[in-house]
Structure formats: structure tokens, C-alpha cells
């Protein structure tokens, strides 16, 4: 319920848990951090916001220097979801490019993978040396998953070798559980909201075409879809353009589509 959480977020109680990295007694601090994560999630407007928030908490609750999130895309496989800095962006991108690196086993079955030193680790012969060149020596990757879906992985990096311990691994797994629920929730909410907005938009665009060319709803949809396919523009964008400009971009297939017996 948004209203109750808005009220909680005004309370100053959880505000003392910032910048805790490296401080002993992280259990209590982590718990506070996670509670704060749950509260702050109620301000997010989309999945990018959720990822940013998770990365900020990873920085605060673990000993990492920088962090990134790799997400499972239902269509394209793995993709980068966000990073605290450019090196991480590159390191994560290299995992996807080479299809090797700690993310790859983690996104399939393992809950976490610890890399003590990228210079000597033999498991990923192409990826590890490149990451070492980027100045990242320690890596801790944890799987982001909920009971129902596999979302991807959280990658924690450190400049020095041997930075992450078994304790860090436990902390990171706990953080990842909360992060996964948060990201899944926001993903489902925004997918559903966007799908509904898209249907509204397409319906309205159909209506404009139906009136203008005296065609029925199915024919109007066929026009939109054909235009989308021919020009490789998302259906959503075609509909949005049509509505805002009141015309299909110049190379209009309307007349052809309307006359075409295939679309009757």
C-alpha cells in the first residue's frame, strides 16, 4: 500500500545505515539496510530505478568497490541492467560478449561464485585477463532469483585481490534475495502498466485510421502492423507517432493495405 509506506519513509529511523562498508557488525547494519531498501523501493518508477537502488545498497552493505547487475531478458538472453561505474559496465559487457565469466554459471544454476584474483583464476581464460586489465581483481557474483523467476546476477567487484570472504558471500546472497524480489516486483508492475498503455495507444491509433480510411478495426491493425514490420519500428511507436502527428510517416502503406485483398 503506497500510503503506509510513504509514511514509513518519512521516519528517520533507518537513515543511520548509510556508508557502512567495511565496518564490523554488518549483520545489524545489513538488516537495517535491507529494511531501508524495501522502503525506498516505494519511490521507484521503473526497473532502472530499482537496479540503481540495489547497486547503492550493494555498495553500502558489502566491501565491494563497484557493482553491476546483469538481467535475464525474456527474448534476448542476458543483458546489462546497470552499473556503478564504467569499468563494471565493460567487465559485465565482456561476460556477455565472450559468454564466459562468473555470471554465466550463476545465471544457470550456482547461487554464487567467488573470484579471488582475476590475474590467476583459470576458469575464464578470455574474460579474466581483460577484467584484470580494467583494474578489477576480486569478483563476487550472486544469483538474482525468486521462487518463480530467474532474473540475472549481481556482480560485486573490488580493486584489490582477495577482497571478498565467505562472510561477504553470505551477506551478498542475502542482499541478492531481497534485491531479486524488489526487481521482480518492479519489473512485473512496469510490464503490466506498459502493456496496458500500449493497448490504449494502439486502439486510439486504430480509431484514427478507421475513420480516416473507412476501414474496420482489423484492417487498421493490419496497417499499423505492416508499417511496424516494414520500417522495423515498434508497434507502440508507430501508434504513438500516428497519434501525435496525425499521419503515418511519408512512405504510407495505407492505400496499398486497404486495397490489398490479403488484408480483408
Amino acid at each position: 500500500m503506497s500510503v503506509t509506506h510513504t509514511e514509513i519513509s518519512r521516519a528517520p529511523a533507518a537513515g543511520g545505515f548509510r556508508d557502512v562498508s567495511g565496518i564490523p557488525g554488518t549483520d545489524v547494519l545489513l538488516a537495517g539496510g535491507l529494511a531501508q531498501l524495501a522502503v525506498e523501493l516505494y519511490d521507484v518508477a521503473g526497473i532502472d530505478d530499482a537496479v540503481r537502488l540495489v547497486l547503492a545498497y550493494a555498495r553500502r552493505t558489502t566491501t565491494c568497490d563497484c557493482a553491476g547487475v546483469v538481467l535475464v531478458d525474456r527474448r534476448t538472453g542476458l543483458k546489462t541492467g546497470g552499473a556503478t561505474d564504467r569499468r563494471v559496465e565493460q567487465a559485465d559487457q565482456l561476460q556477455l560478449q565472450y559468454n564466459e565469466g562468473p555470471c554465466v554459471p550463476v545465471s544457470r544454476e550456482q547461487p554464487s561464485v567467488l573470484v579471488s584474483d582475476t590475474i590467476v583464476d583459470p576458469r575464464w581464460p578470455r574474460w579474466s585477463p581483460r577484467v584484470a586489465e580494467l583494474g578489477l581483481r576480486s569478483v563476487l557474483t550472486v544469483r538474482l532469483c525468486t521462487a518463480r523467476s530467474n532474473l540475472g546476477a549481481l556482480n560485486l567487484y573490488a580493486i584489490h585481490p582477495g577482497r571478498f570472504t565467505a562472510d561477504d558471500e553470505t551477506t551478498a546472497r542475502l542482499l541478492a534475495q531481497h534485491a531479486a524480489v524488489a526487481i521482480a516486483t518492479v519489473r512485473d508492475a512496469s510490464t503490466s502498466a506498459q502493456a496496458i498503455e500500449t493497448r490504449t495507444l494502439i486502439g486510439r491509433a486504430q480509431g484514427v485510421l478507421m475513420e480516416r480510411f473507412t476501414i474496420d478495426a482489423d484492417q487498421a491493425f493490419a496497417v499499423l502492423r505492416r508499417y511496424s514490420q516494414d520500417n522495423n519500428i515498434k508497434l507502440h511507436s508507430v501508434a504513438a507517432d500516428l497519434i501525435s502527428t496525425r499521419r503515418l510517416p511519408t512512405r504510407s502503406p495505407v492505400a496499398a493495405a486497404v486495397r490489398s485483398p490479403a488484408i480483408g
Partner: peptide
């Protein structure tokens, strides 16, 4: 939604 588009024209 369709009627909204039609009426706007």
C-alpha cells in the same frame, strides 16, 4: 480506445 480515435478525426 478505437472510438476515441475515430471521434477525434
Amino acid at each position: 480506445h478505437q472510438a476515441t480515435g475515430m471521434v477525434s478525426v
